[in-house]
Design a protein around this nucleic acid. Structure first.
Lengths: 260, 260
DNA sequence: GCAAAATCAATCATATTCTTTCATGCGGCT
DNA sequence: AGCCGCATGAAAGAATATGATTGATTTTGC
């Protein structure tokens, strides 16, 4: 038995301290820690790298922030941050398709979320959605809002799965605004999760008109599973960086392609 | 005067500050922020650009505006603050009634919301709820979460009305934790809104066991409309300021009254 | 509609921080 | 002893963040 009474079991002790600080302040800077712990900055950085490997923190220039804290943006499978300008333009364009007294469905995804933001003051419509983020967006004063029930899929913050069928089958939807992870001629519409796909497909089959919102990054991507048939899509609204070949192919399928 | 040259804040700290201001005022000016944060305008602009990339804000000339997103809680807010200690104690006590693999229903209301907060790390249960607040609370890593579908009632931030029946009737609920606006022997359980009442009643009729969470302020209050039958309540968890007469009367009805 | 003022984007200089690499020292092992 | 493994510290060069400057753009005031 090797009694490890090493004087230098300091690493665990440092981590302890580090976790305490992070739990309290959510963010530390490395020079703060060098001072408090009396070790070199190099060691602190190595410690922080370790903790980052464990997923407890995220490194930032000058220090680290604890994950799951309030100043840590949650992880989505759909990156809001890319092409936000394009997404906003697409959402603007989508707005024109909405008429008074329409019942519109808002799918998950960041582009559709941008559309949701624009619907706050359109009080003469009814929104149906499975997106928690869209719901929060519209939770204040605004148009009528109906959530489909279902199981929360945390990665996308949407309600998915078989339980969503009740409301979707029961409601009449004029225009369904859908997002997608992948869009291609070979793969059609694809997404990462089967339950998510199920709900998407269900909506598309029941909506009177399906309008797809997809920025150019989705082009030629093929994700894990099919999510609805391209034939159900009447309009695709995309940005002007969308691949022309793909647009052409989609037009050939009878889809009205709008580039903004 | 210890006019220490304070370390500049790390970027995440600035962002936090920024988000706070924006959540409160909806709009910030750049020069306002340079002053408050003690960094140059260039840095503020870069920060704002970053946040815009994340979709959290929209840049405007001179500053930025929030894209909205926070949960509205005007009336609700004072309600959360009254008797918060009692509500927490009640929620703590309610926790004991939850067993592994239970399916629990979480109603709207601030006391139940406190319970929801305690359920974040109880991964071995299934939650069903009509409360948007509880949902947001549990939207991060946590136990399985199912939302009943339905129309959003903004005042209470709950899903209510006839559309909620599909899932509630379809799901098996072991324990339903209910809130109420009024609790009295004469009026029974009462609440302000008929749709809300409908959904509450539906849940109570279908749950295997109904546990009512109500602080002493609810005693003898009679609200607009009946919301479920007292006979369905098996346990009332309340605080120690609850009127004894009422407690006694409820016990006579066969309800187990727990005061904490 | 024009001019002044404010704000912005772009660029560069500087300071800070990060990564990489190497040297040192301490403890344990054969 | 002598050697190895490991944690640490130190240093150099790369990367990044910040602040100041300048000319362009937008808003404001008249």
């Amino acid at each position: 038995m090797t009694a490890l009474l090493r004087q230098k079991d300091l690493a665990p002790r440092r981590w302890e301290h580090l976790r305490r600080i992070l739990g309290r302040d959510q963010v530390v800077r490395v020079d703060e820690l060098t001072e408090q712990l009396g070790v070199s900055a190099a060691t602190i950085r190595r410690d922080l790298d370790q903790l980052e490997g464990l997923g407890e923190i995220r490194r930032v220039h000058g220090g680290a922030v604890s994950t799951g804290g309030r100043l840590e943006e949650p992880l989505f499978d759909d990156k809001t941050s890319v092409a936000i300008k394009e997404k906003r333009r697409i959402a603007e364009a989508a707005l024109k398709y909405i008429k008074p007294n329409d019942t519109v469905y808002l799918d998950g995804g960041s582009t559709v979320l941008e559309l949701a933001r624009l619907l706050k003051d359109r009080s003469n419509i009814t929104n149906v959605t499975n997106s928690l983020r869209a719901t929060v967006e519209l939770a204040g004063p605004g148009p009528r809002l109906i959530l489909v029930g279902g199981e929360l899929r945390r990665l996308s913050q949407t309600l998915v799965g078989p339980l969503t069928r009740f409301l979707i089958e029961d409601l009449h939807i004029d225009k369904a605004f859908m997002g997608t992870m992948g869009l291609s001629l070979e793969g059609g519409l694809t997404t990462t999760d089967p339950s998510e796909a199920y709900t998407k497909e269900l909506v598309m089959e029941h909506a009177r008109e399906v309008i797809l919102l997809a920025d150019h990054n989705k082009a030629h991507k093929i994700s894990f599973t099919r999510a609805g048939r391209l034939e159900k899509v009447r309009v695709l609204i995309t940005d002007n960086l969308m691949d022309r070949k793909l647009a052409k192919g989609l037009r050939k399928l009878g889809i009205e392609v709008v580039r903004v």
